[in-house]
Design a binder for these strands. Structure first.
Lengths: 197, 197
DNA sequence: CTTTTGACTTGTCAACTGAATAAATTGAGC
DNA sequence: GCTCAATTTATTCAGTTGACAAGTCAAAAG
């Protein structure tokens, strides 16, 4: 790859990363392309250059987050096929908690977009969430009352992620820094034990 | 109370209710006084008349939500002093889930404001959340490792509320309407059993 | 070495948004 | 019927919005 197109990809990546954070924090409407550009230390005009519109940029940002989630979940479950299925479930939950801690944008974006039923929400569900939900269904849903599967899914997502999504609030409210390594592991263990007793 | 000031209070109430919903959905920045006025079926000028500024209105909206939460939690726990403490905890959790279902604004607002550490978040923590957290500490925190109390608090909040906060998404993703009576009760039971085995 | 190409910058624009308020209107209560 | 609070209408004006056209510059191609 030429030096130029390497630079190009680095820039695009910086923009998408900044976009993911900003959209997650402020919502689609509340995020401005200018703020995204500033965070990415990039000129505002570049955004329209690389991504045709704010809408396209949003989709690229969502793709990025869910791509990372897929990767990390796959890695976290590698080589566990032979173990006790309950322990395997716990391991999956721990991997998910660790991801939620490292990337609070995922949860923020989900809440931000899941609230209203507009076009973006539909795209998100059809493009990324359906696959994720089906994965959960096959993963931990076996042996569970089918009527409880949706409930369990949202219980897990909420229990695992909220504390990291509102980290500033958590610090002020409880004095605990949820982003510290020990807190992440404590949280992972608690959620895993509660959901798979 | 005269007919006039009754009308006045009704109007104020309508505005605050619409404001709570709008702030919860769009965030402080993303919510416009125009949209709030439209939702409340009220003229935009009235907002500045009744509440001095957008900031004051936001605080009134937060007061409303947390006031309702306090009331409902108190009512949900009335007359249970003599029972088994574990069942009492479960009853409290069920009451909280029912509130989260009836008022998804609470969770949406918490996530919306907890993300960044600005003045509003501090006000929210100091004015409302500290009391709530202390209540939780005394309520379910007894017999729990003190280091786990913050984690348990956010696990409960997330597990109980997320499914209702993203109800549109849940409907499209799973086909389940989380706002139906049966779903609310199923969720309450699941969360209560998981957190207090 | 020159030309071309493509990443990036600058400047600008029209549309729209924001909160706030001043002036006009209404109608209940004295 | 007069008064004044509640409400509406109309307007202000500053700031922001996404988008884009024209220009810059350096790396690659020939």
């Amino acid at each position: 790859m030429s030096r130029r197109s390497k630079q190009r990809d680095e820039t695009r990546e910086r923009i998408v990363e900044a976009a993911a954070e900003t959209f997650a924090e402020r919502g689609f409407r509340g995020a401005s392309t200018r703020e995204i550009a500033q965070r990415a230390r990039v000129n505002q005009g570049l955004i329209t250059y690389h991504f045709r519109s704010k809408d396209d940029l949003w989709r690229a940002a969502a793709d990025r987050i869910f791509g990372m989630l897929r990767t990390q979940l796959r890695d976290g479950l590698r080589g566990l096929e032979s173990r006790d299925p309950r322990e395997r479930s716990r391991q999956g939950i721990r991997a998910y908690v660790r991801f939620a801690a490292a990337h609070p944008e995922l949860f923020r974006l989900m809440v931000e977009e899941g609230k209203s039923s507009d076009e973006r929400m539909c795209w998100l569900v059809d493009t990324h969430l359906k696959a994720l939900f089906d994965g959960f269904r096959g993963f931990g849903g076996s042996g569970l009352d089918p009527a409880l599967v949706p409930h369990a899914y949202y219980v897990l997502a909420g229990a695992a992620s909220l504390i990291f999504a509102v980290a500033p609030e958590c610090r002020r409210l409880t004095g605990l820094d949820p982003e510290s390594n020990s807190a992440v592991e404590r949280h992972a263990e608690l959620v895993a034990r509660l959901l798979v007793p």
